[in-house]
Design a binder for these strands. Structure first.
Lengths: 215, 215
DNA sequence: GTCTATAAACCGATAGAC
DNA sequence: GTCTATCGGTTTATAGAC
């Protein structure tokens, strides 16, 4: 965990993560990382044993920070699936959780970009990170969709999970183009709220669940 | 257009595009590109004047090849919006068009990756390509959603367009992780058909349109 | 643990012969 | 138009002093 990590090491991980997210693994030099925290080039190799290992540590940090526990918690409480209204509220909350996990103003904006990049350029370490951290989360989400609609096969429920994740991912990787279309300089909180509401409303309606009044 | 392009130049563009899609602009050396087509390193600078220009040409080529005209064509024929059934069929066809545009087996698999990468790492040239080629397509899609549901504001219709594009984009950038979850080596045609059908069914249902029998 | 200095390799771009 | 050779700059990683 981050708590027992030395301050210098964590500072390197955060600086590296931001630069890796911005310009990629190949586009980021260890010199730039060291310079960003006022450290030495050799310190990176001393602490992490190389650029690639530092990249892995940064990715692991981000995925741990962005962990969404909502689906797993929901599966432990039957009452979430008692009525169509409860199911709709659960779906809305799961969508909101994922949006805030990557777009909350209190959260570094580069977290999402690093995750997208790790999928686009999978390093050998991605497999470990995915299986340890992303897999359980994803499987819980699939099971939630099956509990919401028991007629769904596991494969069909997986496509619902992909739809949810994909729509959020678009606002990460497509940011530059979306901002050009919107003719804005950066995402506003209002826009992201509207996007999250659109996604949850769409999935609730497509699931045949009732739209919530307090939406 | 590609027709009047010299064979050697086009070969360089295609080889460069594939490598850029695979390992990114920074991760691809002009040496590797030249080697892939049996050409010389200097030829790239002679024909394109630098690595970045070649990248722009490759991106332009892909976006032209992947152009989806369905939305613009639909707007020219009122009958597509005559009945809820016609609207649903139109929505299904637009989803299918975009899926086949990037996932048809007859199409290079790297096209989508290059598009995603261009959004994630916007070069100065992206703005030109986006405004010339992607903008009209996107605006037509937004108008189609407004014609399908006249109650939608332009902003709301835009979110529907983002949902459509985002879900397709996920199967591009998330391929490595999706294949790990599915425990497969590559996408099958059946899986992509199921994914496209899921997306179109979900959006049709969420729009309050009737599901089609021949789906 | 942190630094300097440097090794060894690679990069993009270009000059100039053909 | 295509080639070889090379320049000047950058990269990661490391050896060794402190």
């Amino acid at each position: 965990m981050a708590q027992e990590m030395a301050g210098r090491k964590l500072a390197l991980i955060l600086a590296a993560g931001e630069l890796f997210a911005e310009t990629g693994l190949d586009g980021t030099s260890v010199r730039a990382i060291a310079e960003k925290v006022g450290a030495n080039i050799a310190a990176i190799n001393y602490h992490f044993g190389g650029k690639e290992n530092l990249y892995t540590e940064a990715l692991r940090h981000v995925i741990q920070e962005c962990e969404c526990r909502g689906a797993r918690q929901a599966l432990e409480d039957e009452s979430h699936f008692a009525t169509p209204e409860r199911k709709a509220a659960l779906l809305r909350d799961l969508v909101r959780e994922r949006f805030t996990s990557y777009f909350s103003p209190s959260r570094p904006q580069w977290y999402g970009r690093l995750v997208i990049r790790s999928m686009l350029d999978p390093t050998p370490s991605l497999e470990t990170v995915v299986k340890q951290l992303m897999f359980p989360e994803h499987e819980a989400l699939v099971q939630v969709f099956q509990r919401i609609n028991p007629a769904l096969t596991a494969d069909a429920a997986r496509l619902w999970a992909f739809s949810l994740i994909g729509q959020i991912g678009f606002y990460v990787f497509g940011e530059s183009v979306i901002l050009m279309v919107l003719n804005t300089r950066r995402y506003t909180a209002d826009f992201m709220d509207a996007a999250a509401e659109h996604v949850s409303r769409m999935m609730i309606a497509a699931m045949g669940l009732p739209l919530l009044a307090e939406h």
